[in-house]
Design a binder for these strands. Structure first.
Lengths: 152, 152
DNA sequence: TTCCTTGCAAAATATTTGCACACCT
DNA sequence: AGGTGTGCAAATATTTTGCAAGGAA
């Protein structure tokens, strides 16, 4: 488990929100995988544990969790959004994605993060000055073909 | 105009494809703007010139142009894809995007491209070795709040 | 003629919204 | 009671597909 229930509970309470069963289960699903699940896929796993929880609730709570800074939403070029726990014990907190355009497999990586931070900082500074932007986030993704797909 | 019609014509012919009127108009629309238009927005501009060209045709041709390496598709977090001519006389060929999460405005930038290429090359090499990936493309995007949105 | 291309209508996908009810405090 | 959260059904938005007809080589 990425975080204990009581830790989550606390986090919700701090923000005047309720740590409900659907939220608990969604966080459990996200904490138990290294995959990059879509809302639908999360729903299916939630459903196995609690068939009474609806897809709408999953969507609404993913949005809530995103707003709370607990979850990040990505788009990898297939037609849906995919979600990751920001603080997970299954992945490095700061990482990026390598996407196979053949089989759609997604690999997390965190190589050269020091160099990246160096580079990003430089660009951020220049861009915020030049365009008066306050930069809060960045996305880096690599696309390519994995070994298996190249063979085929 | 980014390229002359005859240049496009040639490119299509080389690939055994036809340089039709809808294709010509779509390329004209893309070549005449610095904006990041969605399929719908492209369709609306195409419509003004040729009301008989359908939205489906726009979608199909954007896909075709993407496959031909003439156009790139992006996703900036609003619910649609946005398209850019790769070789445009209105933008640097290699650039990235700065997205305001407030007003959704998108700014092109091409600062520090040399440093970027340096960094990207290094990561690409490491990743392709480590994960047996043949990397073909990358996406770098910055998100933040522009001056106007920060004030409001 | 051949086959690439188009337009229209319909379908498929992904996501959001309205509303009444349930639940915690 | 009062606001937060949920489920269901319906609505929306975006993109794709089937099919018959158009049109260039």
């Amino acid at each position: 488990m990425a975080k204990t229930n009581s830790k989550w509970q606390e986090r919700f309470r701090e923000m005047g929100m309720r740590f409900t069963e659907p939220r608990r289960v969604i966080l459990e699903v996200l904490g138990d995988t290294v995959e990059h699940l879509s809302a639908e896929e999360i729903y299916m796993r939630v459903y196995k544990k609690h068939p009474n929880i609806g897809l709408t609730t999953v969507y609404r709570n993913l949005y809530t969790l995103e707003q709370m800074g607990i979850v990040t939403k990505f788009h990898f070029g297939d037609g849906c959004h995919r979600y990751e726990l920001i603080e997970s014990n299954k992945k490095p907190d700061h990482h990026h994605h390598l996407v196979c355009t053949g089989c759609k497999r997604i690999i997390d990586y965190d190589d050269f993060m020091d160099e990246e931070i160096e580079y990003i900082k430089k660009v951020e500074k220049a861009l915020s000055r030049k365009h008066s932007f306050h930069i809060t986030d960045h996305v880096i993704q690599f696309y390519g073909i994995c070994k298996k797909c190249k063979a085929a």
